[in-house]
Write a protein that binds this DNA or RNA. Sequence first.
DNA 1: GTCTATAAGGAGATAGAC
DNA 2: GTCTATCTCCTTATAGAC
Lengths: 195, 195
Amino acid sequence: MARTQGSHSETTGPRIRAAAETLFARHGYAAVSMRQIAGAVGLQAGALYNYTPDKQSLLVDLMQRHMEALMGAWAQEVQGDTALAALEAFARFHIRFNLARRDAVFIAYNELRNLEPEGFAQIEALRNAYEGELAGILTAGREAGLFQLEEPRVTTRAVIALLNGVLTWYRDDGRLSLEEVESLHWQMVRRLVGV
Amino acid sequence: MARTQGSHSETTGPRIRAAAETLFARHGYAAVSMRQIAGAVGLQAGALYNYTPDKQSLLVDLMQRHMEALMGAWAQEVQGDTALAALEAFARFHIRFNLARRDAVFIAYNELRNLEPEGFAQIEALRNAYEGELAGILTAGREAGLFQLEEPRVTTRAVIALLNGVLTWYRDDGRLSLEEVESLHWQMVRRLVGV
DNA sequence: GTCTATAAGGAGATAGAC
DNA sequence: GTCTATCTCCTTATAGAC
């Protein structure tokens, strides 16, 4: 407790990122001003520049942290020993993880166009790595004779798109529970890949 | 040929909309200025206000025209007499129509958050009507014993999401032709709904 | 680390000449 | 119908006091 009450440097960074994430997701990166972000955290705009060199870096930082959290969490997931078990694990993980971080996901998918080339390349590489995880499962399942896929790359993207659809309509207080939504989508994915 | 060369009122309206559509899709509504739009058409910013009362109306106008073109085109589509034929028609139509108008589709899905309440309600109603077309096909197919669906509403959204996925990666000069992409997705939808 | 003040520029929209 | 000029406001980012 040596720190004085006025010094918040260890918490304001995360609070700034949290506020920016919410605001960017709701209104879009371009539509949100540094003043709005500062206001949400109880700061003046100038103070933000103690935490980020500029607005663009704030966006890149959010996306990078999200993609790395996604990859890290998937790496720790129990994946089973068959392609079928791995696919179920992926489908359920993707829905669960992304629904818990909708703002970050929304930003990662919709603000890529507002990234300058270097940031864009970084984020795209991380996304390709994640899609590659699913692609690996699908091709393994095809080689094992479990799945029926005409075009693994197309199927990979189709499965991701299908799962991401949930993010646009699911509500925590809605008719269906998370577990039900997971299971419904797993059944659809299962049929889609021709099990 | 009675018109003078300097008078372009019949064509500048469409040209403004076309330029706005391209720019909004590429950079986002909030990031595009009226000056940019005017510049793309060869006008000064002030002249735009002969064609739209404000920037927001330009966005609503684009979305409305797109959704109405979508509904109108689907109404004219030959839909077959079984739910299976109707579903194939819908899947192929959705991919073909939307791929031909990617900018408009992109705007319709990503700029809803930049709409004021009245505009938002209008566009959402049109979208719900379109989704209702697919929902009708799916429930008809289920009642006929053709499809296996746990939750028609969830399946409807899943199919739309799956088909929309194409819009994010398809390239006219890519490896797969439009017809191939249509067929691949139709096969996936077919399996997804448990035919 | 945060503040106030400010620089430098771009935004949406309007007025009035032509 | 388009232009130039302008109003008013907001933007990102920085400088320097505390």
